[in-house]
């Protein structure tokens, strides 16, 4: 389980970096402070933000598969990628969107069996609704917070277990 800390750390760092970039971009742009060109907010910034999540999430779960060797995780990653491609390029409609959200939910739920703490399991369960809700409300981003807390709990737990 100690190895899973790598996944949790990278998971949190990934979201930390994209949130930091997005929030900095938005607030620096509308402030009188100098804004580097790459951080200047444009209408593409939110697309990049969403794109980073949609591409970053399966990459994180590939890492989870490497660390756990659980076959169903890889199956879910493939399903996620396939449905995402179909959704973006072929069937851009609400039904496909919901299917994608459900697959993404299953992907998030694949972390649950790996969790040591039952509170983390509950928290990951809450976060699994994130991509399902992403297309309907900007507040869905708040659903990620439980997974950050769960990651923290798991990291601390594994460190505790490993300590003498």
């Amino acid at each position: 389980m100690e190895r899973l800390s790598i996944f949790y750390v990278i998971y949190v760092i990934f979201f930390l970096s994209i949130f930091l970039a997005y929030d900095l971009s938005a607030f620096l742009t509308v402030s009188p402070l100098p804004t580097p060109s790459f951080l200047f907010y444009t209408h593409n910034t939110s697309l990049f933000f969403l794109g980073a999540q949609l591409i970053g999430i399966p990459s994180l779960f590939v890492l989870l598969y490497i660390l756990t060797r659980e076959g169903y995780i890889m199956v879910l990653v493939v399903m996620y990628s396939t449905v995402l491609i179909l959704f973006i390029f072929l069937f851009h409609n609400i039904i496909m969107q919901i299917i994608f959200g459900i697959v993404a939910m299953c992907l998030f739920l694949s972390v649950v069996p790996q969790c040591v703490s039952s509170i983390s399991k509950v928290l990951w369960g809450i976060s699994s609704f994130y991509l399902l809700a992403e297309f309907f409300t900007p507040f869905s981003i708040l659903l990620l917070v439980p997974s950050f807390l769960a990651s923290g709990i798991e990291i601390l737990s594994s460190n505790n277990n490993s300590s003498p």
Binding site: V12, I13, F15, F19, Y22, F139, V145, S151
Partner: peptide, 13 residues
């Protein structure tokens, strides 16, 4: 890190 990430996700709103 956990707190900052959570805070940034709230600031996003």
């Amino acid at each position: 890190i956990i707190l900052i990430t959570s805070a940034l996700s709230i600031i996003y709103l």
